[in-house]
């Protein structure tokens, strides 16, 4: 057998409590793991939806056509990124535990929070990558439809109305708010991923994780109604049973308001999203994601492997 020489002791490997290189190693490895599960096939479906929706409705006015194209494309981006976030995150810990790769990784000088952040980072990289790809596809289809419509308009519009018609066309295709809306899709998916990570840090099966995460997502969309009722209507002294009050308070306190992260419909309708509003929404979303990740760490740090 060939012999192994010890590593050169003049280059000491000193332990750091936090190492970006380690974090990146785990995140990129997680991304690779997810990519090699062939998740990107959903992009084909997305392209089909995006192109199909724009061809299906050619009998409508161009404003209506673009509305449908944007609704369907942005809606599909929301659904796909949400599904990816929940399904990809839910299987990370159980899979590593089952394969005992978790043992080998944590038996190396890797702090548990770094492992957890790396795993989440891998999912976020996957989400960013797939949203970027979908955005590019969507922009391509939008540009193609815009060119088609432009040709039609130029052929059919009297010269004095042409400027207004082209202006109307441009206003119903690309707007800066579309970019902000796509960023909020990412934000919402990131919240869902960290929430799923939190659930999976104490759950015993990934099915349970997925179910709880999906329920939390649906309740998160009703949360503003419950919150509003709990905060404003109840103090006004309406005859609601204490049980209902406790339930409403529970929903308001323990669930995020997912409606706040729905800026997509606004952008698709051609309305401008003010930047300060976007920034405040992002700050809140970051808050959710950080709290959920921290709580996930709390459970994971005490987990007996």
């Amino acid at each position: 057998m060939p012999t192994s020489t010890p590593l050169d002791p003049s280059v000491p490997v000193r332990h750091r409590w936090f190492s970006p290189a380690r974090l990146l190693a785990i995140a990129s490895n997680t991304l690779l793991e997810l990519v090699r599960q062939k998740v990107f096939y959903f992009l084909l479906l997305f392209a089909l939806l995006s192109i199909g929706s724009s061809l299906l409705v050619v009998q409508f006015t161009f404003q209506q056509q673009f509305q449908v194209l944007k609704d369907v494309s942005l809606g599909a981006m929301s659904i796909f990124s949400w599904l990816l976030a929940v399904l990809a995150t839910a299987q990370l810990l159980p899979r590593d535990l089952e394969d005992r790769t978790l043992y080998t990784i944590l038996a190396k000088p890797v702090p548990r929070f770094e492992y957890l952040l790396g795993k989440l980072g891998g999912v976020l990289l996957l989400l960013a990558l797939s949203l970027a790809l979908m955005s590019a596809l969507f922009a391509g289809v939008l540009a193609w439809r815009e060119q088609t419509q432009l040709a039609l308009i130029q052929a059919a519009t009297p010269p004095e109305d042409l400027e207004a018609a082209v202006q109307a066309l441009r206003a119903s295709t690309f707007t800066p708010s579309l970019g902000l809306a796509i960023l909020t899709i990412f934000l919402r998916a990131a919240i869902c991923a960290s929430l799923t990570l939190l659930i999976s840090s104490f759950a015993t099966s990934s099915i349970f994780t997925v179910i709880v995460s999906v329920i939390a997502y649906i309740i998160g969309h009703i949360q503003p109604v419950a919150r509003d009722y709990w905060l404003h209507s109840l103090p006004a002294g309406q005859g609601v049973s204490p049980l209902v009050q406790v339930f409403l308070g529970f929903v308001a306190l323990f669930f995020p308001d997912f409606q706040l992260f729905n800026l997509v419909d606004e952008a698709a309708a051609g309305n401008t999203i003010p930047f300060p509003l976007f920034a405040q929404t992002s700050a809140l979303g970051l808050g959710y994601a950080m709290v959920y990740t921290f709580l996930a760490y709390l459970f994971f740090s005490q987990k007996e492997l």
């Binding site: 509003d228 905060l231 308001d257 409606q259 706040l260 405040q280 809140l284 959710y288 709290v291």
Partner: peptide, 13 residues
Amino acid sequence: FGFAKLAPESLLT
């Protein structure tokens, strides 16, 4: 956190 987030959520709404 639930109590802390109520105000920003309502404000943003």
